[in-house]
């Protein structure tokens, strides 16, 4: 939801509606040398410090199977995300769901002017990414961030198995 307000008026507003801040993340899907490799399902979301769910950012799952319904069969294997949010949704979710991605570094930018960040109240949060791979494992990485940004310092966490390096930076 974007509301256009003349520049002269914005100074009068105290609402956090018009953050210029963007949440820029990069998620590395590691190259894994196995005979049977499938791209992982990946979910990204925002949590409050008590680990309660705040907002969905992205879900990458199998959209290419012959029957779209089949692709949702394994969403439950993103079991943390499934319990916190996934089971409440009807897939696909516009602006959230997308196809699985190959190994490599995937930068994703979530605009402060768009859902869900446009309505995210100022405070402390965690960016959470969960990856689950067929005939493979599952891993969750959490990175804390402040909204809106206090600095543009990137925070990096190295995943151990199903995730490579995960980086979060909030651009003020």
């Amino acid at each position: 939801m974007r509301i256009r307000v003349p520049a002269a008026v914005t100074g009068l507003l105290t609402t956090p509606l018009m953050f210029a801040a963007d949440l820029e993340v990069s998620v590395e899907i590691p190259r894994i040398n196995v005979a049977e490799y499938h791209r992982p399902y990946v979910a990204m979301w925002i949590e409050k410090p008590d680990q309660s769910f705040a907002a969905n950012l992205a879900v990458w799952y199998d959209l290419q199977t012959a029957k779209a319904e089949k692709g949702t069969t394994w969403l439950k294997d993103l079991r943390m995300w499934w319990r916190k949010s996934g089971r409440e949704l009807t897939m696909p979710v516009d602006g959230v769901s997308g196809a699985t991605r190959p190994p490599g570094v995937h930068p994703v930018v979530f605009r402060g002017s768009k859902a869900p960040l446009a309505s995210l109240a100022p405070g402390s949060y965690h960016f959470v990414v969960e990856a689950s791979r067929e005939v493979g494992g599952r891993e969750v990485v959490r990175i804390p961030f402040q909204w809106p940004a206090k600095s543009a310092q990137p925070v990096k966490v190295q995943g151990q198995s199903e995730l490579g390096q995960v980086q979060v930076v909030v651009k003020p």
Binding site: E69, K70, T72, T73, W74, L75, K76, W82, R87
Partner: peptide, 8 residues
Amino acid sequence: TVLSNTDA
């Protein structure tokens, strides 16, 4: 016991 497919 937990399924994500609604025709399962």
